[in-house]
Design a protein around this nucleic acid. Structure first.
Length: 238
DNA sequence: AGTCGGGTTAAGC
DNA sequence: GCTTAACCCGACT
């Protein structure tokens, strides 16, 4: 029972460049995950997924969202814009079988075990942000409002691995992992122009530059370098 | 071949 | 609904 995104009974779409409907938001967020920030024409691609929106629109919207998150993060705003909205449930995610359409969708009712779509950097960053917003344990809210491409179960599972990694990494890390990213790289996330976010004064002087941009593994076949995963992103304020 | 990382799933609370 | 742990698979050593 896979949900084909193309089969959605799409609600009326208002393609105003200023107003974003829930549905548009969904399309946007899904596209956000699909087109990682390492792709050249990211906003063009994403814009194509959201009818009526221009690349500039989606980029602005992204910065808006990021800004919101950062404000929430810094305790200025209680809740995210649509935190209590649940009218988008049916179109917010795929079944774990189909997941993100990264090209490898199971044909049809395949009894086979699904491989499981790896988390993207983007998703992991969102996860970390959600973690800060809603706290550890509220996977449902995180899934619902932040990492909309993952089910609560998937988020919980990812969190489990993430925290396990955090613990084991203290001892000694063997291979690099996506979970090594523990800081949200807000730069690579396109900081809002106005830079309203004020990093909480974390006592002593440490606080590295909010975000470290670590190279992703991608394909390390030719690069003998130690690849680092999505999880190298760490939430900054703390 | 053994080990590790990461995703899914089932069981327990 | 969340946590924990087993399980599985792919990739790395």
């Amino acid at each position: 029972m896979y949900q084909d995104t193309s089969c959605w009974t799409a609600p009326p779409i208002h393609s105003s460049s200023t107003r974003w409907t829930r549905f548009e938001d969904k399309l946007f967020e899904q596209a956000l995950v699909r087109f990682s920030d390492d792709l050249p024409d990211r906003w063009d691609n994403i814009a194509q997924q959201v009818p009526g929106k221009s690349p500039t629109d989606v980029r602005d919207h992204y910065e808006d969202l990021l800004h919101d998150v950062l404000q929430i993060d810094s305790g200025r705003v209680p809740m995210p814009t649509y935190a209590d909205d649940d009218s988008l449930d049916d179109l917010s995610r795929w079944d774990s079988t189909s997941q993100i359409s990264f090209g490898t969708k199971p044909k049809h009712g395949e009894p086979e075990r699904k491989k499981g779509t790896p988390w993207t950097e983007e998703e992991h960053r969102l996860f970390l942000l959600g973690l800060k917003q809603f706290g550890k344990g509220d996977w449902r809210s995180i899934s619902r409002n932040v990492v909309v491409t993952r089910t609560p179960t998937q988020v919980a599972s990812h969190a489990q691995k993430y925290f396990l990694r955090q613990n084991s990494v203290k001892k000694e890390r063997k291979r690099s992992s996506i979970h090594d990213i523990t800081t949200v790289d807000t730069n690579s996330m396109s900081m809002p122009a106005d830079q309203n976010w004020i990093p909480p004064p974390s006592g002593p002087a440490q606080q590295q530059p909010a975000l470290q941009h670590l190279p992703l593994p991608g394909h390390m076949s030719d690069q003998g370098e130690g690849p680092i995963g999505v999880d190298d992103i760490r939430v900054c304020s703390n």
